[in-house]
Design a binder for these strands. Sequence first.
DNA 1: TACTATTCGAGAATGATTATCAATTGCGGT
DNA 2: ACCGCAATTGATAATCATTCTCGAATAGTA
Lengths: 150, 150
Amino acid sequence: MVQEQKTLLAAADKLKEYKIKNTPQRQVILSYLMTSHDHPSIEMIFNYVRGNGFSVSLATVYNTLQLLIDNNLIIEIAADSGGHMRYDYFEVPHYHVICVNCNKIVDVFDDKYKKNEEHARLETGFQVFNSQYEVYGLCPECQKKLSEEA
Amino acid sequence: MVQEQKTLLAAADKLKEYKIKNTPQRQVILSYLMTSHDHPSIEMIFNYVRGNGFSVSLATVYNTLQLLIDNNLIIEIAADSGGHMRYDYFEVPHYHVICVNCNKIVDVFDDKYKKNEEHARLETGFQVFNSQYEVYGLCPECQKKLSEEA
DNA sequence: TACTATTCGAGAATGATTATCAATTGCGGT
DNA sequence: ACCGCAATTGATAATCATTCTCGAATAGTA
Ligand SMILES: [Mn+2]
Ligand SMILES: [Mn+2]
Ligand SMILES: [Zn+2]
Ligand SMILES: [Zn+2]
């Protein structure tokens, strides 16, 4: 069995686990997010699905992503200066370091920041579902590029 | 001297400190953000400025907010399910607990999460400017309201 | 006070997201 | 395996938040 089929099946399993009705579009979108590490935009997801021989509309991409967000399977990241949202499978907690110059997003797998969820619950009485942490700065490449320009 | 004038002067000082050219519009917008604790949306800011007798256009509100963000004086929070951005003066680090049902935003003044900035720098080589942490959940009121409905 | 780069602002343009709604489909029940 | 139907899809139109345009107004400087 080829890798592509495996990830489709893994996505189907995850949908079943979360009691989300299975469709080809949802399977492909979720499998892409589960395996890619590039925090894709809506447009990238749309192109990926069509590029793999599945039919899909932009509306379906938007609907599916909102559904996955509501189920806490993925998160939305405001990283693109152009206002585009980026999407990320979020079963393993991690945080994001974002370059304000080139919009690169780097994963850091350290869930210490998650400790604050308990603190938030005690302080506010909220029932906590999820949390995310974003760090903004300049990536090494952009630091170099910008210092050369000066 | 009335309070309103004091906060306008405080805003003017802050603009000078950051070498941002002073204008009436910028003064009012910044003074509103410095004193309000309600994390206003663009529309709320626009109405506040006009409601206090100053002329302003939406374009100027957008431009001013972007300028303040670029200077790390304020942050943008994606809290409104309706996709509206909210704005917050951010000189004193704190994080936000957001109700996914009523979009309420609660401040928590505990900057432990800021410790991760140093971790991020070491892991990635980024030059770090800023970071923000958001916790998503249900506020006590919405917990009650939703459990009564069931 | 005069000069000039910067900012303001009304309205138009853009473009990302959402709404529509008829056709299709997944899936629990028989 | 087939039915029945609620849920989903998708082409397209509608919405509306944000950005652009460019002439007028203005802040800061000397
Ligand atoms: Mn990630
Ligand atoms: Mn705040
Ligand atoms: Zn970069
Ligand atoms: Zn609430």
